[in-house]
Simulated assay, not measured.
Amino acid sequence: MHFCFEPMNAANAEKLTRWHYEPPYQRYNSTSDETLIGSFVDSQNAYYSIQYNGELVAFCCFGKDAQVPGGDYAKDALDIGLGVRPDLTGQGKGQMYIADVLDFARSKFNPRVFRVTVAAFNERALRAWKKAGFQQVQAFLAQDDKEPFVILVQHI
């Protein structure tokens, strides 16, 4: 299964703001407001729609928007954020999403190191990234809400 990546547009940004995750993943729920949608479509924030058969199934972003304030991002790496549509999570397909996102990132940005920041409670995501070859290098508390996060890297 290979996905199609396109720069985020307003229609897809609006769709993903309506995604609703069940507990304990509700922290990923957002609201549909113009500021958030504007952030998703701003090309400097490097958000991409991930589609399969013309249907929005996930999104990703690269760079600063994939970071969580409080983590140490001093070392050079390409930060990756990934969100999968709620009804498609927990089905054991994380490796497909991750592999295609990494392939896309390699072709677009040619990084030496990939980095992801994952909420510590999100065991599914941590397992998926580790299975993809990422290793934990840091744990920290987010600046704003003091929630624990983990930073993982993969050297290319």
Rank of each mutant, 00 (worst) to 15 (best):
P69L: 01
G94N: 09
Y28H: 09
K130I: 12
R127M: 04
V101Y: 11
D145I: 03
F59D: 11
H155Y: 13
A139D: 14
N29V: 05
A142E: 14
D42A: 13
K146H: 15
K15H: 03
P69R: 00
D100I: 04
Y73I: 00
V41W: 01
D100P: 04
D144R: 10
Q143L: 11
V153M: 08
I98G: 03
A142W: 03
V137I: 15
V57H: 05
S39F: 05
Q95S: 15
K131Y: 09
P24M: 08
E34D: 13
N53E: 14
S39P: 00
K130S: 13
D76Q: 14
L88S: 02
P7M: 04
R115P: 06
F40M: 09
M1F: 09
C61M: 11
T17K: 00
V153R: 13
L56G: 01
D42N: 15
R18Y: 05
L126S: 11
L152W: 09
I50G: 05
L16S: 00
V153A: 06
A66P: 06
Q51H: 03
V101L: 11
V57A: 07
R27K: 04
R112H: 14
F3C: 08
E147H: 11
V116G: 11
V150M: 12
L56T: 03
N122G: 09
K108Y: 07
Q143T: 15
N110T: 13
G63N: 02
W129I: 08
D144K: 13
H20Y: 06
N12W: 01
Q143G: 09
P86M: 12
C60I: 10
K93F: 12
Y25Q: 06
F40N: 01
C60P: 02
D76H: 06
C61E: 04
R127I: 07
A132N: 08
D79P: 07
L78D: 03
D103T: 12
N110S: 13
V68P: 04
I151C: 15
A119M: 13
K146S: 13
V153C: 11
F3Q: 07
L56K: 05
Q135R: 15
S39A: 10
D76W: 00
R127P: 00
E147Q: 14
I98M: 02
A132L: 11
P24N: 12
A105Q: 10
W19S: 01
V113C: 14
T31R: 10
R85H: 12
L88I: 03
Q136V: 15
P111C: 09
V116N: 02
N12R: 03
P24G: 10
V57Q: 01
K146I: 05
V68A: 01
K75S: 14
P7S: 10
G81Q: 08
Y52H: 12
R115F: 05
G133E: 01
C4A: 12
A142T: 06
C4W: 04
T35Y: 03
C61F: 08
F114N: 02
